[in-house]
């Protein structure tokens, strides 16, 4: 009998694998985000064109995807394992495939399909080219070579791997619902998160106070702008992230029209691009002063 890989062991195995490849083991961010890309360990770090290899788990919130814990694959919150390698190594695709073997997939017994997926995060003004990686038809990873972030061209091209941990675990454990995943040998994913899913689905779809959220959005946006003016892009970025999450809740709540949606995305993107520009500016100032010191 094969030993069952628990959810927590999969996280540990993947983290160790990427640690061996030279990644710094980081932690999730302390604010609601829709993807690991929002974490400053990605968004801010890819702007400076310096070597940066990192791996961390991110708790991703996608309010629209909640299904009251009734759909086996759809949840408003899930775990991503995020890997950034900057610059992207030549062997990155093989590293990635080996990481799948390392958690227990024999490539000879599965199909790994690289499905063209031009990735973009409209609220971050970021885009890249790469793939959705499907394992036996199930999308488990987003594999992207970043080209732009915060509206700025990147020079050292980072590669981003975003593993959908629940989905990988489902395939490994052979269960048909995320809820049935063994987290450890005693508890399932459902034991840990079922109630959370039900309550947040209700919140996102019907209980959220849209008037409050719209007002918060406006205030956070104003605060971000004020911080930018003070030359504080990092705290300003925190408020940018908050705006992005509020937007996601409003959208799930069905409170914004298609065209308003476009406008709100543009507003968040404007904040993100200001963050990017301010950070770039600081980086170039620093490198100028470093050169000055050397002289």
């Amino acid at each position: 009998m094969k030993k069952l890989r628990t959810f927590e062991n999969i996280i540990l195995d993947l983290s160790k694998y990427w640690q061996k490849k030279g990644c710094l083991l980081y932690q999730p961010y302390n604010s609601e985000v829709g993807a690991g890309t929002f974490n400053p360990a990605t968004f801010i770090r890819v702007l400076d064109n310096k070597p940066w290899n990192v791996c961390y788990v991110e708790i991703c919130k996608r309010p629209r995807d909640g299904r009251y814990a009734e759909n086996p694959l759809r949840f408003q919150q899930f775990y991503q394992l995020q890997v950034i390698m900057q610059p992207a190594p030549d062997d990155i695709q093989r590293f990635f495939l080996e990481s799948l073997e390392c958690v227990g997939f024999k490539l000879k017994e599965h199909e790994v399909r690289f499905v063209e997926g031009d990735w973009d995060a409209p609220t971050l003004g970021a885009w890249g080219l790469g793939w959705e990686v499907w394992l036996d038809g199930l999308e488990i990873i987003q594999f992207t070579y970043f080209q732009q972030a915060g509206g700025l061209e990147l020079e050292e091209i980072p590669v981003e791997l975003s593993y959908g941990l629940e989905r990988i675990a489902m395939l490994l454990q052979g269960v048909e619902s995320v809820l049935d995943l063994k987290w450890n040998n005693k508890l399932t994913w459902g034991d840990v998160y079922r109630q959370n899913e039900i309550e947040f689905s209700k919140y996102n779809f019907s209980a959220a106070d849209t008037r409050l959220l719209v007002s918060l959005f406006n205030q956070y946006e104003a605060e971000a702008v004020r911080l930018f003016e003070k030359g504080l892009p990092l705290p300003g970025y925190d408020y940018t992230i908050k705006c992005s999450h509020i937007f996601n809740v409003l959208e799930a709540r069905g409170a914004i029209s298609i065209s308003e949606r476009v406008k709100m995305i543009a507003r968040v993107r404007a904040l993100a691009s200001q963050v990017a520009q301010l950070c770039r500016q600081k980086i170039s100032e620093q490198s100028v002063s470093e050169k000055g010191v050397k002289r």
Partner: peptide
């Protein structure tokens, strides 16, 4: 499903696509 792997993968592929299609159709019907 036409796939691009070893024949050995057949059962896993079948299982995987059944799950994915089922989940998408579940959503659609919902």
């Amino acid at each position: 499903c036409v796939f691009s792997a070893k024949k050995k993968a057949l059962q896993n592929v079948k299982k995987g696509y059944t799950l994915v299609v089922g989940s998408k159709l579940y959503d659609a019907l919902f």
